[in-house]
Design a binder for these strands. Structure first.
Lengths: 183, 183
DNA sequence: TAAAACGTTAAATAAATTTTTAACAAACTT
DNA sequence: AAGTTTGTTAAAAATTTATTTAACGTTTTA
């Protein structure tokens, strides 16, 4: 291999690394571990990888790659592929950022709605009990009512968020905001 | 204070705590520290608080409250209010979740677009240089071109995300998805 | 102008998370 | 069936992040 060929190869790797770094950094912000973030960003430029490929490429331990890949599969940023012949499992990165966006945020928001709505429903029941309790003083009833109403109003937001998730999942969001828009 | 009045007060606190716990847990997921998450969730049920109120209510150190409040101000979930007469600073929680959603995600997505687009532009320049380099072998040129094209395609997503941010900021999103939708 | 109140910064401690090393289990090869 | 290969689980180590204690600067009050 010639001198300049080698230089070009290095330049390509450095260029990729810039993007890998940026992608990994944003994923970090999304609550993904550094190992998983680097792994996904690396896989973004690869066709497919085995656990051993990953370990070699990132110079990290195999269990680390194993857990990272599992985490990435959970948020559907990586999928297992069937590669005949090889005993090793092979994985591919989801390269369509629209799909990653959809899965990641829908998952996140749905969980948020579920958790918070459950807590709200329970709390509202408690407030009703206090209000209905004949031994409660007017001041206490007023307080309970105030909190009940505050929670009731907040439900509007959670319904909206659920609606947003539905419209992302069914693709309607792209009717409002087309993917193809130019600069 | 009578026995049952005391019981009602406790029931109210417990009900609030259920919601506080849920809100704090979701905020945790959004990369906010536990102290800040608990603080916001607590403030959600309060009219306004001073740093000392916070320290007392959460039983945490004052510097912890200070940094937490600052972080919450950054993502605009808490605002400083002017309270005449008191030397202490007073803070109020943003209670409209729609506004919190808008500020938080727009900030996050905008930073993501900026960071990643910068890296992409730089990398694309590098790839172009390799392609134009007369000493590059056909194989290397093909490789550089492949990566260049992959990045070029990914830009569609970042443009879309920018567009989404714009349409959230200007409120158009609520034309597509009204806030008032019933159950 | 001295003392107190308030908030922030910096260093140190504590806690939580991430990664690794080591041990294990299952599937495959020979 | 014994020995590999592959991937995962569990315990340990390392790193990072969060929180506290201590010190400081500024403003206010007496």
């Amino acid at each position: 291999m010639s001198e300049s060929t080698e230089r070009s190869r290095i330049k390509i790797e450095e260029a990729k690394d810039k993007v890998i770094g940026a992608i990994a950094e944003t994923m970090d912000l999304y609550g993904v571990t550094p190992a998983a973030a680097n792994l996904y960003a690396t896989m973004y430029f690869k066709d497919q990888m085995t656990l051993d490929d990953m370990r070699t490429e990132l110079e990290m331990s195999k269990p680390s790659m194993s857990t990272s890949v599992r985490k990435l599969q959970e948020i559907e940023m990586v999928k297992k592929t069937f590669t005949r012949g090889s005993r090793k499992h092979t994985y591919v990165a989801e390269k369509n950022f629209f799909r990653s966006f959809m899965v990641f945020y829908c998952q996140m928001w749905e969980r948020e709605v579920k958790m918070n709505m459950e807590a709200i429903e329970e709390a509202q029941e408690d407030f009703i009990n206090v209000i209905k309790d004949s031994t409660s003083t007017p001041e206490i009833v007023a307080d309970a009512k105030k909190y009940y109403d505050q929670l009731e109003e907040s439900k509007t937001y959670y319904h909206w968020l659920e609606d947003l998730v539905a419209n992302i999942r069914n693709g309607n969001i792209f009717e409002f905001l087309p993917q193809g828009k130019k600069e």
